[in-house]
């Protein structure tokens, strides 16, 4: 499919999904919301980390910062503006840390991005406590579920569309070049540092905005719950399980994983983690190409 066709397909999917608040029950809607949220997180993670093979654990930091933007500003700003601001804070933070740490590679990069996220969490805790004498913030007057759903849907579509455009652009080419051989890309005239910072910052818009969009669902915002490292871990897990170098893989994987884990949780309330663990191990060992490889093979067989 060409980029134009992919964009058209995304838009079509979006149009269908937009009807969900009228069709689904509250529970199914919030399940759909989770699927969308993780799809957007996984796609935006894979946008930068897929082609470059960087392993970023900063997603929960962007998400948490976004959530705090809402917590700090929802009284004075409309919801949509707060979400936008959350995304921009994500971008700014990513550009800042990207400039400082993108020369690190492998596990060092993973650990330092995680460390920077935790550092931010604890700085916010300290600031809030010392200067505002509070440990958390209360959000009253939250928008209704349909409004949150549509906001997250728009963000998800935006993430997918951005990913499509990046892949088709010179930026995507440069990122793949960096992933294959950074020195070679440099000798070919790519300003690798600038490219990496740009892409890393761009990919951080979505987790930031999603944090801002989702925070209103929890009434009480405290650092430990919105900077929850598991949000970042699960994003990485889903993106990699789906195939981080593909476009469709992280989306399929995020939806699959959200639905399966919810199904197991409700159906087997005491052993779902065990089943989830086994499923995960089996998938990685016996489906090393990711869930996307399943689709691709099937597609080929059909054709």
């Amino acid at each position: 499919m060409s980029a134009r066709e992919q964009l058209a397909a995304t838009l079509a999917c979006g149009a269908v999904l937009a009807a969900a608040p009228w069709l689904l029950s509250d529970f199914l809607l919030s399940l759909a919301l989770s699927c969308l949220m993780y799809a957007a997180l996984a796609v935006s993670w894979a946008m930068f980390c897929g082609p470059t093979h960087y392993l970023s654990l900063a997603t929960s930091a962007f998400f948490g910062l976004g959530a705090y933007v809402t917590a700090w500003s929802l009284e004075s700003l409309p919801y949509g503006v707060a979400v936008l601001a959350g995304g921009l804070i994500g971008v700014a933070f990513a550009a800042l840390i990207g400039a400082a740490v993108l020369h690190l590679r492998g596990a060092y990069f993973a650990v330092i991005t995680f460390g920077l996220g935790e550092l931010t969490l604890h700085l916010i805790t300290y600031t809030e406590k010392t200067y505002f004498h509070t440990a958390g913030r209360i959000i009253s007057d939250a928008p209704d579920n349909a409004a949150i759903y549509w906001t997250v849907l728009v963000l998800t579509l935006g993430a997918v569309a951005t990913a499509i455009l990046v892949r088709a652009s010179r930026l995507g080419l440069a990122l793949r070049g960096i992933g294959a051989d950074e020195e070679r890309a440099q000798t070919l005239g790519v300003d690798t540092r600038r490219v990496k910072i740009l892409a890393f910052a761009l990919s951080a818009f979505f987790p930031g905005a999603l944090g801002a969009a989702m925070a209103v669902r929890w009434t009480y915002i405290e650092p430990l719950s919105v900077f929850n490292p598991f949000i970042g871990f699960q994003t990485v897990l889903m993106a990699m399980l789906g195939g981080a170098h593909t476009l469709i893989g992280p989306i399929v994987s995020a939806v699959f994983f959200s639905l399966v884990s919810e199904f197991l949780r409700l159906r087997f309330p005491y052993v779902f983690l065990l089943l989830l663990g086994l499923l995960l191990i089996a998938l990685i060992l016996y489906l090393p190409g990711g869930l996307a490889s399943l689709l691709r093979r099937r597609g080929r067989a059909d054709a």
Partner: peptide, 23 residues
């Protein structure tokens, strides 16, 4: 009807939406 919320805020909200609005 008791389910595990996994110590996760979003799971708490989703579970009670299911219990109250769907079930």
């Amino acid at each position: 009807i008791g389910v595990d919320d996994r110590s996760n805020m979003e799971t708490v909200v989703r579970s009670y939406e299911k219990l109250m609005a769907s079930d």
